[in-house]
Design a protein around this nucleic acid. Structure first.
Lengths: 340, 340
DNA sequence: TTGAAAGCGATACCAC
DNA sequence: GTGGTATCGCTTTCAA
């Protein structure tokens, strides 16, 4: 390994310049791949850099260029069920672009958020992502004014009018599920919806209805029942309610995998065979889905892709369009709770 | 809101100095709460700062002080099952100390890790946490040499000899479970272990054995059976195997909540009542535990606390002790799968 | 093509 | 107690 310290201190641009017999300007140009450097000088400088193990100090560079090559994620809930995958997407594109990702957890506390935003701005961050890991819904405007030169988007949540949000295409995802069921022979499909105060439930319901109609099936309101919570226990009860109302149902689309586990249990307790008598589809593609009996067909949220989109947006050169609602497509994960 | 821009640029220390009729040195002293500033001057400067909405530029400060007030987490797997809680702990102590947290995902790829470490060092980070979110095990030494002045610890994994690791007290956690069961009248307790190539299983087994002996109960090897995987399906099968070998068992301690769900199902299918005939305890306190029938008593991993400890260690003034293995205590979450 | 020098925004040493 | 000033490491005109 080459010597990268001199007198116990890091090698600087100046050290390289001295060693290579040029000035700091020239070394800087080489580092930044400028064209106005002669080939032999460039070569010599590069060799010196390698020999000395020089690495540019990004703090100094940041001071000079007024950029920090850093983006920040500010989340309400770092322990949200979807946060890791969303973050992974952001980290992935950021890392590929040699940007760093700062992480802040506001716990939904405005004062805390204001303090954190303030610190982030002090750090000269280049961009900002407001993220929810739990639930799509409105987020109030930033707890402190964000300077104009710092672009920001909302991820898995949305801000005030005029801002940009990256969201899953819940409606399309629901349609995917219904199409899949119909393809596999289902004709009496019911929708086991989640709590109606969650926005995703309205979108998924819309997708359900639209898909039925598009396929020439009646979309009557008796086919839909909303569970008061997302708990499997309520999924169980709601499934039973649906069954009583629509005894000839041959498929059930559940608004979440959790609800679907309850539904599966209810069907099992009634002696209904899945998928032969009734087919079941969930939503979210949580890890528990694969461990159900039978393994649950479900609609996967494009979490990583959404994180990547958010990252690309804030890192992109072009300004972020106003009032953009970027819907990222879901995908269907076929397992054994639907026919093959 | 006060004017915090001048000519569209941020207010600087110089602007404050000029406005307050002092020099930059004095303003700097006020900002840093130095004592060598007269009360009336300090007052005046503070008012100017407030009036102008001045905020120090941490990049400039970082260049001068050679610190960045930033720590980094480098993880193998950002989507690990335990990452969010660990990160929350780190973020919490960091945020409280006005430090920022950088997030890097190496995917376990050494080259990627080397690139990221290099970038982090370029950014003058103050400290480093290597984190696993999935599994306690050995992690090879950092993919690139970390300068001496950057302290680092391992979180939920451990490094080469001589390094410091923050780990859960699996052994103590297992003992907690056994004590709990014995307290509730269990005398024939079996241990449904996980895959033996996971280190946690050995620790939990040791805790199980030690607790039995401490309570004067025989700790024979027929009381233990290891599941080949963590899948509930294998938990189901292993539970049945244990039952056949120890027909008079009155409690089962499972090495994970996932295994416990399989065990619960096996007991249910055998017509065994939980907790009246057999009591069940899991491990991990995953969110699914509370939705079991009956809700599962389990041992909670101290994830947030571990993250906090790791953060405190790397942020602490005192140097990190060599070869420290910091075991953080688990806690028991009593629910209805054990008697009350 | 190469270099000299100013300056990004702070801190800290040393006079006064 | 307050101020002058060198400096942290790099980028960027502008001359040569």
């Amino acid at each position: 390994m080459s010597e990268s310290l001199v007198d116990g201190k890091r090698i600087t641009l100046r050290d390289v310049a001295t060693a290579a017999g040029v000035t700091t300007s020239t070394v800087s140009k080489v580092i930044n791949d400028r064209r106005d450097v002669g080939p032999e000088v460039r070569q010599r400088v590069q060799e010196t850099i390698a020999a000395l193990g020089y690495r540019p100090n990004s703090v100094a560079r940041g001071l000079r260029t007024q950029r920090s090559d850093t983006i920040a994620i500010v989340t309400d809930d770092l322990e949200g069920i979807f946060t890791n995958s969303l973050m992974r997407g952001v980290e992935e594109v950021a890392s590929a672009a040699d940007k760093a990702v700062l992480l802040c957890n506001s716990y939904g506390d405005r004062e805390r958020e204001a303090r954190q935003l303030s610190r982030l701005i002090d750090r000269q961050i280049d961009a900002l992502i407001f993220m929810s890991g739990n639930r799509v819904g409105p987020r109030p405007e930033p707890a402190m004014e964000v300077p104009d030169h710092i672009p920001y988007v909302y991820l898995y949540e949305y801000g005030p009018p005029g801002t940009t949000a990256v969201l899953p295409d819940d409606q399309g995802g629901a349609a995917l599920a219904v199409d899949h069921l119909i393809e596999r022979g289902a004709r009496r499909i019911v929708f086991l919806n989640g709590p109606t105060d969650w926005e995703a439930t309205a979108d998924r319901l819309a997708g359900f209805t639209a898909a039925l109609e598009r396929n020439g099936l009646p979309a009557t309101s008796d086919l839909v029942e909303s569970s008061p919570t997302w708990d499997p226990e309520d999924g169980y009860a709601t499934m039973n309610a649906l069954f009583e109302r629509v005894p000839d149902l041959d498929a059930v689309f559940c608004c979440s995998d959790d609800l679907a586990t309850g539904a599966l249990e209810a069907l099992h307790d009634r002696g209904v065979a899945v998928p032969n008598d009734v087919q079941v589809v969930g939503f979210d593609n949580r890890s528990l889905a694969i461990h159900q009996r039978p393994p649950l067909t479900t609609v996967a949220l494009p979490l990583v892709e959404m994180g990547m989109e958010a990252g690309r947006l804030v890192l992109g050169e072009r300004p972020i369009p106003e009032s953009l609602e970027l819907r990222v497509g879901c995908s269907l994960v076929a397992r054994e709770s639907t026919r093959s």
